[in-house]
């Protein structure tokens, strides 16, 4: 039993390898397929055909595609993602500073979202067609229909401008503080690790509004899925058995029902996570959050191909990793995984 589950987990890991390789091939071809000649671009506007050819040779672009791909792989292996023309930094260092910002925002938003969506969904399912259910529906509809830049601006207006309880929306940390030395890249955690409570609370203060904005938006799919899955499970035979055995309502709801309803919720969570990570550009813009989404948009606007390529690659790898984690969590939740299929 346990050994066969280990086999399933290992198999799932092995399945991720060809996917990752496919991702690398696609990002490689993608930049080759983009319009414009990078050699001409890098050589500058005053370049002669000779200097362009020189740059092309220097970039290895005169080689046949397989050779270029081999070189690309080599670069990847050494962590060389190229140079960003807009920031002047290597793409790798840009991503390493900006990805944690996005991850910190997305993760805290989703945890908040889950903390609200699951109880809401459970309540709505157990009290179907009552006030709670209608409130849940209203919250969910409002959350998904209001654009994030609007909710973000509204929150800033109310809590910063009017009430003054929130800090100014100027990124991850006020200028008065020094960024904590990076361990996890998450400012709040890093500051706590460094024992700097003041910086931690300042970073947390900065995080609250953007996280709430994103949480309101991601609430809808999670709450709806929790409600639907709970409704289906609560109607099943084994819940009737549990009731007939005199198990307490709490135990039935949170024990058997929720655990059985968790699979579709986890699936949705994975999708929402992947989606939110790349698509929270608007939130990042409103709060001047130095995340990877705004980085990619800026790079795209100025045709910074190396940066775009790096972004696409990193996001694709993240998607693969998240899906891997989701699939692995299935095997923890459901003992049947891998036996039916």
């Amino acid at each position: 039993m346990t050994s066969s589950r280990t086999v399933i987990v290992l198999k799932r890991f092995a399945q991720a390898i060809p996917t990752l390789f496919g991702v690398i091939v696609v990002t490689f071809l993608l930049t080759r397929a983009l319009p414009g000649d990078p050699a001409a671009y890098f050589a500058g506007p005053a370049a002669t055909p000779e200097s362009i050819a020189q740059v092309r040779a220097a970039l290895g672009l005169d080689q046949p595609l397989p050779a270029q791909f081999a070189r690309y792989l080599q670069d990847l292996a050494t962590g060389n993602l190229g140079q960003s023309i807009s920031t002047g930094q290597t793409v790798l260092s840009d991503i390493l500073t900006r990805l944690p910002a996005s991850l910190e925002l997305t993760l805290s938003a989703l945890l908040l979202s889950l903390a609200i969506a699951m109880p809401l969904g459970i309540l709505a399912a157990t009290r179907q067609n009552t006030m709670v259910d209608h409130v849940c529906r209203a919250v969910v509809t409002a959350g998904v229909s209001l654009p994030v830049f609007f909710t973000g601006l509204a929150l800033v207006y109310v809590f910063y401008y009017q009430l003054g309880v929130a800090p100014a929306p100027i990124g991850r940390l006020d200028f008065a503080y020094i960024s904590p030395s990076p361990v996890t890249g998450f400012f709040v955690i890093d500051a706590l690790l460094a024992g700097d409570g003041e910086t931690a609370s300042a970073a947390l203060g900065q995080l609250v509004l953007p996280a709430v904005t994103l949480a309101i938006f991601t609430l809808a799919p999670l709450a709806r899925m929790t409600r639907a899955a709970m409704l289906q499970v609560l109607a099943s035979d084994f819940i009737r058995t549990a009731r007939a055995a005199g198990l307490s309502r709490r135990k039935i709801l949170l024990g058997s029902a929720l655990r059985n309803a968790l699979l579709p919720v986890v699936t949705t969570f994975g999708m929402v996570f992947s989606f939110a990570l790349g698509a929270n550009v608007l939130v990042e813009k409103v709060f001047a959050w130095p995340g990877i989404g705004s980085y990619a948009v800026e790079a795209l606007v100025v045709s910074d191909y190396a940066a775009v390529q790096g972004f696409v690659l990193v996001m694709a790898i993240l998607f693969v990793v998240i899906n891997l984690l989701i699939d692995l969590s299935y095997t923890l939740i459901d003992p049947r995984v891998g036996f039916d299929g």
């Binding site: 035979d237 084994f238 058995t241 009731r243 055995a245 058997s256 655990r259 059985n260």
Partner: peptide, 19 residues
């Protein structure tokens, strides 16, 4: 329920928590 009066059902596999 379960201590004084108990019940068994049809379709026993569905009557048990699958996970």
């Amino acid at each position: 329920r379960g201590r004084e009066i108990s019940m068994i059902f049809q379709n026993p596999r569905a009557a048990l928590d699958p996970i």
